[in-house]
Amino acid sequence: MKRVNRLGRKIWKNRAIYGLMLPGLVWLVIFAYGPMSGLLLAFKTYSAKGGIWGSPWCGLENFRYVFRDAAFFRSVFTTLKINIGRLLIQFPAPILLALLLNECVLKRYKKLAQTIFTFPHFLSWVIVASLVTNTLSMDGLINNLLAALGLEKVNFLGSSRLFVPILYITENWKSAGWSAIIYLAALSGIDVDQYEAAKLDGANRWQTMLHVTLPNLKPTIIVMLVLSIGNLMTGGFDQIFNLSNPAVEEVSEILDMYIYRVTFGSVPDFGFSMAISLFRSLVNCMFLIVADKGSKKLGGSGLFG
């Protein structure tokens, strides 16, 4: 009784702080936690009349359908394939870019370059995809250039062989400059003494980069790598949604695209698509927790700063 009283008094004393948080918390309840009740449909047979609460339960039946669906497994496989490729091919680009900018002796030129490199990050994928389509189309700049050089034109956007590499290239075109900022920040924190010492030891530029600059970047690189594990199941939806077309469907249908197709396609089955969404959310959550724990273990800030 006494404890309840004390708690009550504490709450009352801090009522102004609760008042401060109220608008944000109300929003969270309505628009973040409220919709989660929709996930119940994963265990129900959806009927428009019954809605979320009135539809009859069906146990794990929806999941049974999901795990029997070949398209589902194909989309999971495609997602992992594309994202592991991103780790190998796309991930190093910002690091190389930062190292390159770091070697630039003309400070104003470096600044100009950095400004230009960061700009595309702030454009939506709708815009970037339009630019990409324009540049790579059959009568676009690149193909005209190929033709002028006497080479054969390439159907870049309709080729399922080229689609995934184009994803890596366009993602770097859009965001490598932005991602390089974190490495550049780490570089600017390197002690000048280390460079002086390297100079005294007679190290050339290449050796200095390899033995002074790169080791200093290592902690940042590792933390970023671990954090990107959190995106293994998601990531790239905006990009792929805007760049894909029927010709490349077999290589472009990642899990999120598949969920979009079954949810808003011609014969939507809400229970079925909720079951996939729930699966995706759980796996994604797991990846994020692993990434967070890993990053903290390595001395990084983790997902939550």
């Binding site: 973040a32 919709p35 989660m36 009740s37 929709g38 996930l39 969920i259 979009y260 949810t263 809400f270 698509s273 909720m274 969404s277 729930l278 995706r280 959310s281 759980l282 994604n284 959550c285 994020l288 927790i289």
Partner: peptide, 8 residues
């Protein structure tokens, strides 16, 4: 970490 996605 966790959200229901666009449909809910």
């Amino acid at each position: 970490l966790f959200n229901g996605g666009i449909l809910p």
